[in-house]
Design a protein around this nucleic acid. Structure first.
Length: 210
DNA sequence: ATTAAGATTGGCT
DNA sequence: GCCAATCTTAATA
């Protein structure tokens, strides 16, 4: 089987999120293949999370979140950007993990072409959730795409090159202090708004760090 | 029917 | 650090 199997995704978003770090995100299309190592994610915890798109129940946009795990939930925002989530948990339980940044591994030229930046500027390729989707060719046509057997999937090998920590999520106004952003310390995670005083300090995620 | 906000980014001061 | 861009979605009337 290519990449992680369905059971991997069939548990709480908060459990899946840190386990995605260090794994390889793959996207294949007619244009070619690109891959990157996941270094930053955020968990969105459905009905108990006011920041989740699923908080107020199913809508046309978030329908995929309420479906089976192991699929992509892709939404459009700010009139110009796409963001991609990994759907977790079981049918009717809308947990999801937002992919926020990867370390580019292969297909750099294609990423640069899609992003309209110099492929040598590695940190401009896929650091940030909307940059990531652009570099990987992910838009609303991939909403609901199956991560098991589809054109986008996640490899089973986990390679960590720094400590994994948790901190507040970025760019939200509700439940802003929940430490549900997980990232690898290093040059690849997005630099914006690191945890500030008054918010929970980042903590080591033991299960992933060992 | 109308409206306000948005899981962002890039450019400018 | 501040702010405009840009338009879909979902809530409100």
């Amino acid at each position: 089987m290519k990449g992680l199997g369905r059971p991997f995704y069939a548990r709480d978003a908060l459990e899946v999120a840190p386990l995605l770090l260090g794994r390889t995100l793959v996207s294949e299309s007619e244009e070619g293949a690109v891959t990157g190592r996941i270094v930053e994610v955020e968990a969105y915890c459905g009905p108990v999370d006011p920041a989740s798109h699923a908080y107020r129940g199913p809508t046309k946009r978030n329908a995929v979140m309420f479906g089976p795990p192991g699929h992509l939930y892709v939404y459009f925002t700010y009139g110009m950007h796409y963001c991609a989530n990994v759907v977790c948990e079981s049918v009717g339980s809308p947990g999801a993990v937002l992919l926020r940044a990867v370390e580019p591994l292969s297909g750099l030229d294609l990423m640069g072409e899609r992003r309209e930046v110099d492929p040598a500027s590695l940190r401009l390729l896929a650091r940030g959730p909307a940059r990531l989707t652009q570099a990987f060719g992910i838009d609303r046509s991939l909403d609901g795409s199956d991560l098991v057997g589809g054109p986008v999937w996640i490899g089973g090998r986990q390679v960590l090159r720094g400590d994994v920590v948790a901190g507040p999520r970025i760019g939200i106004t509700k439940a802003a202090s929940e430490p549900w952003r997980f990232y690898e310390v290093g040059p690849w995670a997005s630099p914006r708004r690191l945890p500030v005083p008054g918010r929970p300090a980042a903590r080591i995620v033991d299960e992933v760090n060992h």
